[in-house]
Design a protein around this nucleic acid. Sequence first.
DNA 1: GAGTGTGAATTCTTTCACAGCG
DNA 2: CGCTGTGAAAGAATTCACACTC
Lengths: 218, 218
Amino acid sequence: MKPIPKAVISRLPLYVRHLEDLAAEGVRTVSSGAIARSLGLTDAQVRRDLATFGTFGRPGIGYPVAELGDALRAILGLDRTWQVALVGYGNLGRALLAYGGFPRKAFRIVAVFDTDPAKIGRKAGDLVVEDGRSLAGRVRRLHVPMAILAVPAAAAQEAAWQLVRAGVRGILNFAPVRLEVPDPVVVDNIDFAVSLKQLSFHVRARGGEKMHGSEPRP
Amino acid sequence: MKPIPKAVISRLPLYVRHLEDLAAEGVRTVSSGAIARSLGLTDAQVRRDLATFGTFGRPGIGYPVAELGDALRAILGLDRTWQVALVGYGNLGRALLAYGGFPRKAFRIVAVFDTDPAKIGRKAGDLVVEDGRSLAGRVRRLHVPMAILAVPAAAAQEAAWQLVRAGVRGILNFAPVRLEVPDPVVVDNIDFAVSLKQLSFHVRARGGEKMHGSEPRP
DNA sequence: GAGTGTGAATTCTTTCACAGCG
DNA sequence: CGCTGTGAAAGAATTCACACTC
């Protein structure tokens, strides 16, 4: 099978979400142009991306929403349920546990860890916060393949090593540090500060301070 | 001035953070290779990136940590303080307000909004949650240039329009929707579900389940 | 006509490799 | 030496444009 370009993978989740929205609206079929408009892409790009996985579209008709959605979900591995460990139950950890935006069928948080004695034993949704020291054993026993890391930067690398030793294969890292992990383990980083800084660049670049509710750009 | 490639901009915040770490350790000078190793890049890539902004490096020596950091911060617009409005004070909003990872000098949250009557008037750090209906007026009066949007998906587009009308020029959007905004306004999206889905793809792709005991894929 | 799939052209990004400075 | 800056080459991603299908 072809090797699926990185750029395509980064857009796949967007296609899946949009197709789910369409399906929920009862739409049966959609064109590359319509998808492109909704997602801020071009029609050609959408067609190229989707052609990576096979021939789904029908000329003059478009793409079958349900079928294409299923196919893309399968490719992303969303046709199963991933057990996820949440490491770190501070403000962010709590927000993530309560976050409604995760596809509930595909991802389920099955354990929560923290090292703060004041937090251990407290309820966390329908789970209980467990001692971070038991992380390795618990994660291995539960065969948890993925973890969300929401601990302070200083604790992140150590936690990552424990997760790796416990057999975790993917880490969604919210700590603002580059994690070192052995080769087969995948890390995806979400760094709020990085995103804010990029935003500040773009805002500044767009004609600076002079305007506030006013004029356009040449 | 040259137009600064997108790819470079996306890495700039990482350079800045790393240079700040180095400065805090008292390092005066650093080579492209060393930066590359810390950030998971190649030395050539680092040199190319940094050469975009001028000639900072000295052959045989490397780059001056403090000076380069200052220059990059200035390019990102981090040499000033950005007032930021936080829209949405649910779990995520609370986590973001309390989040310690933002550069405190560069970004300051100056107002918090929510539409839930139960939240309005409650303390939020050293601020008070304000009525979402007063958002437009308050944001315009304060000349807030950037906003963090942490409201449910269904409310995001409406909130974005209000922000835009109030003169906001950049939005960091946590809602899982594509916001439509007029041209001069910049949106940066952080979508947890998107990141998790990408992770699931990569984990699945790396030799599947055999490694520790989950089920296989046909 | 509406809308796909795809070679070919274009643009963007990364890597190579090396001349030349400190 | 060690290390930068940069032309030139290679590799990716995007866009164009068009033959072809419903």
